[in-house]
Amino acid sequence: MFISSENSPPCFKDFTLVMPAVAVGNVGQLSVDLIVSTLNMSRVGYMHTDCLIPMTGNNPYATSNENAEELHTPAEVYTAAELKLAVLQIRAPIIQSKSKKFRQLLVSWIKSSGFSRAVVLSSSQAYQRDDQQMKGIPLRYLVTPSLLKDSEDALKELSWREMERVSAYPGLTDANTEPRLYVPGGGITKGLYTDSCAEDVPLAVLILFCSEGDNIPDAFTLVNHLNDWLHLLDDPSQKPNKWKIPTSWNLLFGSGIPPALF
């Protein structure tokens, strides 16, 4: 259930929604962090749901001592009205037995809010690729029929590669088994995509093949890829690193090095 932080609920009509799938390396979530912090988006509400592990913390995008002391929760919605962009950040794992319920919640929220399209940032296990998936760049996309109608030309221009269907039993040639969509390590990605196809929701999925580790470079790869399509930042070539890393990424890999070591 979406809860608005203002008295009047925000209007998402014709907005583009960007959201992560909690997936291998948390790449989607890191990418969304970059978007929120770079575009200085404002929080408009949050999802109140028992499908996520409850957690809380201080402002992950703090810029000063004053705004550092806000309380933030596992699934929050941010907007940049001038870009007609909304972002749902998910900060906690989905409870396994409730992933179906969570997918339904998302799909019905996307439908009822009037988003013009939704983009899911996701990742998949690099080591489970098949031969064709190992060729070229490690980025793939999926798009539902209802979004394909409007975005076909744009996608053609980008010359992105669609996620290949893989055979259900690799190595066996059986005429009866059709190649299937398989997103290992992608969490709710596949389910959300198939639900959206069935419900006629205009949704795209961007998938990066990666492994668990320091996934910060992966996040930049994915968010730059998204930017090629949505043009969130105007002049991408201006600076070597135009995305602003949020304060919550500090100490991601432990404390500072004790100088007594040297």
């Binding site: 409850p54 913390g57 991601l252």
Partner: peptide, 23 residues
């Protein structure tokens, strides 16, 4: 300080790098 209630739900720390990275 902005919210009336300050609530840290159990499990927060172990499930999020985000919490420990805060201010």
């Amino acid at each position: 300080f902005l919210w009336e209630a300050c609530l840290q739900i159990t499990g927060a720390a172990q499930h999020s790098d985000w919490t420990s990275g805060c201010s």
